[in-house]
């Protein structure tokens, strides 16, 4: 069966919010909330209310990165110092804990940040080819609802969009 991408552009967030709310309450039987993607010019944390809690895995990356940075940082320093044992200095031990703690801390943050970045790039699906169905108005001031639908649902969804003062509807066939 043919599948379609549908993009409806709304002039303000409240209309889009209401439209998704209708989908959530099964106004159109068979259309799942999971098929809905909201694209917006600004961040709308309150969208979770209608879209439901969708997970973000970034904090897990952060945790792994930080723990890795801290432990690998300390081990790296300690091994380097132990293999450079000609170097006792200032009456201090060959492996001095205070300075290693400082540097492990920096490594914790550095790797935490780098892993967070990786998590963000993967989680947000950046660095990929953008879907062609995109309107430049979204980066200006309009809110878009993008859906992946089977052919039979297209007309009811369009009707729902119009009911909520949609400005523009674009559609295309999924290849």
């Amino acid at each position: 069966m043919k599948k379609y991408h549908l993009l409806g552009l709304f002039s303000n967030f409240d209309e889009a919010f209401a439209a998704i709310s209708d989908i959530r309450h099964h106004k159109i039987p068979g259309v799942q909330l999971e098929d809905v993607t909201v694209i917006s010019p600004i961040e709308h944390p309150e969208i979770d209310e209608v879209l439901g809690a969708r997970p973000s895995h970034v904090p897990k990356f952060t945790l792994v990165g930080s723990l890795f940075g801290m432990s690998a940082g300390f081990l790296f320093l300690a091994t380097a110092q132990a293999n450079f044992a000609v170097q006792p200095q200032g009456g201090k031990p060959v492996i001095p804990l205070p300075s290693n703690i400082v540097l492990s801390y920096e490594m914790l943050i550095l790797f935490g940040v780098l892993f967070t970045l990786t998590g963000f790039l993967l989680g947000a699906r950046l660095l990929r080819k953008r879907k062609p169905l995109y309107s430049e108005k979204v980066s200006l001031d309009q809110v878009g609802i993008e859906m992946e639908l089977e052919e039979k649902y297209i007309e009811p969804v369009k009707a729902l969009f119009r009911q909520h003062q949609v400005i523009e509807i674009r559609e295309e066939v999924v290849k």
Partner: peptide, 13 residues
């Protein structure tokens, strides 16, 4: 493109 997945991860990040 500003979709909700991107914004959600963006906010956390």
């Amino acid at each position: 493109r500003g979709d909700d997945r991107q914004w959600r991860n963006f906010r956390k990040t």
